[in-house]
Structure formats: structure tokens, C-alpha cells
């Protein structure tokens, strides 16, 4: 039986454009769609299937304001059993702060005699892209960590983890309790069904107060790169443009 904690973050959707607030300090939420990062959608999928295979449970955790409940409910709708929100402004937290906040939840649950066997985070959030929360968390908890995990199979108290993000597939065999940072691509996130959505809508969300003030991300400012002035040369329309396109390919030296 593996009890799993999966951590998600409400982040602006990178399939659209990004607008900053007037002070350049953060992304203007009025113009952004929000979702959990795609790595985290896969982390939730892995959490639900590991818990299902082993008869364990899934708790989903976020650190964020009231709006981030949307992402917790998205995880509840596909099979998470419990949801916890640390009530804080995510922008005030750097990756070390986030790791410390997660570690505190993990340690509190262990203190209650309900320890997590596996903690999953996304490899990096779609907005801050820090690539380190899971690793810092593993150091705080003194647990092994595999980054870039794409496929996970539980066998007794060990995990077989596969990662193909650096080329050929790397296979790890790690003991639980462990931390994994999940990378998209190894599993297909399931869609919620009607009963899942109904259950998620009614589920109680546990709210925790953060225990101390964060040190912060060290952000001094943000700027959106101005779109480069377009210097596109339109070679033509439809198949009639093919000869000119081939001329360009020859000029570039990619065909002889």
C-alpha cells in the first residue's frame, strides 16, 4: 500500500500570450488562463495509478490563494482522495520556501502516524521553471529523489522509475519512501468523469496556515521580451511556392 502526496501549482497557461502587471513584478492574472503545469497533470496521473495499484491513497497539496482550489479540485476529480491548501501567495515563495512548506506537511503527517510513502512534484512549474523544489524537498526529508520521472511501477517497497528525458531510457530502482519529480510524456492523464467532478465539487479542502515568513524568490523584476520585428519573407502561397522554397533550401545548404 502506497500513500502518495502529489503537489500541484496554479500557473499561467503557456499556450497563450503573457502580460505583466504595471510594476513588472508579476504576471497579470486578468489576461491569463490558469491550469496546473503539464508535468503535474502527469504527476497526478501517476499518483492515482500507484495508489490504485497498491490500495493506497492520494493527497493533493498546493500552496496558493483561494483561486488555486481549482487545481486541487481538478486532481480530486480524477481520483485524489484528500486535498490540502497552504494559504499563501505563491509569488512570495521561492523554491526553497516551497520545499520547506511541503516538507512540513510531510513531517506533520508522519507525526500523526500516516506517513507518505511517495511524494510527487512536477519537474518544474510552467511559470517559474525552477527545476529544484523536489530535490530540495528530498534533502530536507533525507529521502532519495529521481528527477524527470516519466513511468513508475511499484514492487513491494521499491519503485522502478523510467526517464527518457536525456536520450535513451534511464531505469532507476529506488526504495520508498522517496520523492519523484515528474516529467510529461510517460503517462496519459485521465479525464474526469461526471461522478468524479461531482465528488470534487463537494470535497472538503483542508486549509493550513503557513508556519513562517518565506525568504522569497529573489525576484528583482520581470520583463516580457518585446516581439522581434518581423522580417519574414513570404515565399508565396500554396504549392506554387514550392520552387522558391527549394531555392531557399539550396541557399541554406540543406539540399544539393
Amino acid at each position: 500500500m502506497a500513500d502518495v502526496l502529489v503537489c500541484v501549482k496554479r500557473a499561467p497557461d503557456t499556450s497563450g500570450e503573457v502580460v505583466l502587471t504595471a510594476d513588472g513584478g508579476s504576471i497579470d492574472g486578468r489576461y491569463a488562463g490558469y491550469s496546473m503545469s503539464s508535468h503535474e497533470e502527469c504527476a497526478v496521473e501517476i499518483a492515482v495509478s500507484v495508489a490504485g495499484d497498491t490500495g493506497g491513497s492520494v493527497t493533493v497539496l498546493t500552496l496558493g490563494d483561494d483561486d488555486s482550489v481549482e487545481q486541487l479540485r481538478a486532481a480530486l476529480a480524477v481520483g485524489a482522495d484528500e486535498a490540502v491548501r497552504i494559504d499563501a501567495t505563491a509569488d512570495d515563495y521561492g523554491p526553497a520556501d516551497v520545499a520547506a512548506a511541503i516538507a512540513e506537511v510531510v513531517q506533520a503527517r508522519a507525526g500523526e502516524g500516516r506517513p507518505f510513502d511517495l511524494v510527487l512534484v512536477g519537474n518544474d512549474a510552467a511559470d517559474t521553471g525552477d527545476h529544484q523544489v523536489g530535490i530540495r524537498l528530498a534533502h530536507l526529508l533525507d529521502r532519495p529523489v529521481v528527477a524527470g520521472a516519466q513511468e513508475v511501477a511499484v514492487s513491494g517497497d521499491r519503485l522502478e522509475v523510467r526517464s527518457s528525458v536525456s536520450g535513451p531510457t534511464e531505469v532507476f530502482d529506488v526504495p520508498m519512501p522517496a520523492v519523484l519529480t515528474v516529467w510529461e510524456g510517460g503517462v496519459e492523464p485521465r479525464y474526469p468523469n461526471i461522478s468524479g467532478r461531482m465528488k470534487a465539487k463537494k470535497a472538503r479542502i483542508e486549509v493550513l496556515e503557513p508556519s513562517g515568513a518565506p525568504r522569497g524568490s529573489g525576484r528583482l523584476g520581470l520583463r516580457v521580451l518585446p516581439p522581434p520585428e518581423s522580417n519574414v519573407e513570404v515565399l508565396g502561397e500554396g504549392k506554387t511556392a514550392a520552387p522558391r522554397l527549394v531555392d531557399v533550401l539550396r541557399e541554406l545548404g540543406v539540399v544539393r
Binding site: 505583466l20 517559474t128 525576484r219 528583482l220 523584476g221 520581470l222 520583463r223 516580457v224 521580451l225
Partner: peptide
């Protein structure tokens, strides 16, 4: 450094 997939640059010490 690149954040938001490189669409935004963040200044840090």
C-alpha cells in the same frame, strides 16, 4: 533568467 518558457525574463541577484 528565462521564466514562463522563455517568454519572460526574470532579473535576480
Amino acid at each position: 533568467r528565462q521564466v514562463v518558457g522563455g517568454a519572460v525574463l526574470e532579473r535576480v541577484a
